[in-house]
Design a binder for these strands. Structure first.
Length: 224
DNA sequence: GCCAACGTTGGC
DNA sequence: GCCAACGTTGGC
């Protein structure tokens, strides 16, 4: 569901980010707890703070769909076609998804997932090129994702910038990932806890390195 | 277009 | 703080 984009990048207003994160953290305290406990189990839950993930999956809709007369279509081909093949990932309006975006670090990789379409699945790989900053669309009355409850002095929503890296060598359909997931639920394989299946509707989700690597390995296999 | 899953809201 | 009603996501 997330973004509908217009290649709008890095503005100077982004300098207020850190303070924003600090302030809103207390506002959204409950949700943060939920999200961190969710993201706890896998890699590096060593430090008392948040679990450290370094790989992600981000959903977007590659087919036209109109929300208040605005087309929310944004597939990987759209990202690829933008200047510098880079875009902000605006429009996320779910606290868990937002909190995961706030954990993202520059240089980390994410799968670009096509949702709500003929063939849902993983289409390619993107890279986080700018860490979380204020999502300006929450203040824009014309925007599909305008949020009247968010105040300029304490913004609720964040976004990151992502850059196209490459297409998958072959498209990895949801149906195939699901087969592995089910298989792994009995066999104990790497996809048994994959958020795509255990956390319905979450549009930005973490992957363990094992999950990420396993999915990458599917590129060179025959479709299941 | 249906509807299951699940997050959010608001009354109490 | 509980929980029913409601809204959204997203596969099918």
């Amino acid at each position: 569901m997330p973004p509908r984009k217009k290649a709008r990048l890095t503005d100077k207003t982004a300098s207020s980010d850190k303070t924003d994160n600090g302030k809103t953290a207390s506002v959204a305290g409950k949700e943060e707890k939920a999200a961190t406990s969710v993201g706890k189990n896998k890699e590096g839950s060593k430090s008392a703070g948040s679990a450290e993930y370094s790989h992600w999956l981000m959903k977007s809709e590659p087919e036209s769909r109109f929300e208040n007369g605005i087309d929310v279509k944004f597939g990987i081909e759209d990202l690829k076609g933008l200047p510098d093949q880079t875009s902000c990932w605006d429009g996320v309006r779910n606290y868990q998804a937002r909190n995961f975006m706030r954990q993202m670090k520059e240089g980390q990789l994410a799968f670009f997932y096509h949702s709500n379409c003929k063939e849902p699945g993983i289409a390619g790989i993107i890279k986080i090129v700018k860490e979380a900053y204020v999502d300006h669309t929450q203040f824009d009355k014309k925007d599909v994702h305008f949020d009247a409850t968010s105040k300029a002095d304490n913004p609720k929503w964040s976004m990151v910038d992502v850059q196209y890296q490459r297409m998958m060598k072959r498209f990895l359909p949801l149906s195939e990932l699901k087969k592995y997931h089910l298989q792994h639920c009995t066999s104990g394989g790497p996809l048994k806890d994959m958020a795509l299946f255990t956390r319905a509707r979450l549009s930005v989700q973490p992957l363990s390195s094992e999950e990420f690597d396993f999915i990458l390995s599917l590129e060179d296999k025959e479709p299941l």
